[in-house]
Design a binder for these strands. Structure first.
Length: 333
DNA sequence: AATCACTCCAACCGCCCTGTT
DNA sequence: CAACAGGGCGGTTGGAGTGAT
């Protein structure tokens, strides 16, 4: 594919934006909105292509941008999100209000990568450098490795599990990854062609690894609180991994915050007839929940608009969840 | 003061996806 | 179905700024 058509036009300015250009663009968008970007330069009286205007607006002129250096919390969050999302800068940026994907990408390449290496962590895999070398991965995988492609979603999530093994009493559970069984070439999903396997985990298990977003071929997955409890334990609420121990889970139920109950079959598996078909409480701190749904039912765009649905369950949310929201929600539990 | 090396980041480039015709 | 346009994204680049020599 060649250049974008607007770039063929002659006499278009390139390079840094002058204050006058900024003012023209700002004034135009403030007054009329951007509408069709390709028409913005003409209407605003700028000798730029629409893409250039869009970029300038998004990365610099937007009024909701946060200026200044990144805080330590923001850096930590970027690292955590990168571990799950990889180089999906726009999705990472969506979790950091006021920050742009470009900004985050630059920070990652110029600063965070270096810091991680100094700490002995491979920035591509987020594993200790020694481990990476031992595994014969001297040559670091490319940054654009698809951390959560449908085939590797469960694998990716599982790879995070070892760092989530500290004790916690939090009840907040959220899905972090999905294996999209509807993928045309996926053969790993129990012969169910229109299903997904979600992996849930508790963000409080490890403060440094409380990433809870998952991304599949369908886009970023929504975040859901899954409140799990063991009602078989004399009324007391136990963390799910205690309830989910296959050896003692007989008779227990698991309920999420949406009131969806998963009934144990006594073999470590939980069955839900409204939201999920089955939920398998694996021995680790992991539960796989298979959902019968067309991929379209779970599009992130729909979720952004306020709701999405799967058979038997509709989950509403006013606006896209922010990482900080989830953190505080879980702290409240 | 001049030069060089290095860092950082704004902006560009090329590609992909989606919607429209 | 193909062609095209628009928008979005990730990778890369070039230049400004800064510190060292």
């Amino acid at each position: 594919m060649g250049r974008h058509s607007c770039c063929y036009k002659q006499k278009l300015r390139k390079g840094l934006w002058s204050p006058e250009e900024d003012e023209k663009l700002l004034r135009h968008i403030s007054k009329y909105g951007h509408g069709c970007w390709s028409s913005v330069p003409k209407l605003a009286g700028l000798q730029r292509c629409g893409k250039s205007c869009r970029l300038r607006w998004i990365n610099y002129l937007r009024p909701d941008l946060k200026r200044g250096a990144f805080s330590q919390q923001e850096e930590n969050l970027i690292i955590e999100l990168h571990a799950v999302l990889g180089n999906r800068w726009s999705q990472i940026a969506a979790q950091l209000p006021g920050r742009t994907d470009n900004e985050i990408k630059n920070l990652w390449n110029s600063c965070i990568k270096k810091k991680l290496r100094q700490r002995g962590i491979d920035p591509n895999t987020h594993k200790p450098l020694t481990e990476v070398h031992e595994a014969g991965e001297d040559k670091a995988p490319p940054d654009n490795v698809d951390h959560l492609s449908p085939k590797t979603a469960v694998e990716s999530a599982s790879s995070l599990m070892p760092v989530m093994n500290s004790t916690s009493t939090s009840m907040g559970y959220i899905p972090i990854a999905a294996d999209c069984g509807s993928s045309s070439n996926s053969s790993s999903n129990n012969n169910n062609n229109n299903s997904q396997t979600l992996i849930w985990f508790n963000p409080e298990l490890n403060s440094n690894c409380n990433t809870m977003l998952s991304s599949t071929s369908m886009g970023l997955k929504p975040i859901i609180d899954l409140h799990l409890e063991n009602t078989s334990s004399s009324g007391s609420t136990l963390p799910y991994w205690e309830a989910g121990n296959p050896s003692n889970s007989s008779g227990s139920t698991v309920t999420n915050t949406n009131g969806i109950e998963l009934q144990s079959n006594g073999n470590g598996s939980f069955f839900d007839n409204s939201f999920c078909q089955w939920a398998d409480l694996a021995p680790a701190k992991q539960v796989q929940i298979q959902i019968e749904a067309e991929p379209e039912d779970l599009k992130w765009s729909e979720y952004l608009q306020g709701s999405f649905s799967v058979p038997g369950a509709t989950i509403h949310r006013q606006q896209p969840p922010l990482y900080s929201d989830i953190k505080s929600e879980n702290h409240q539990l």
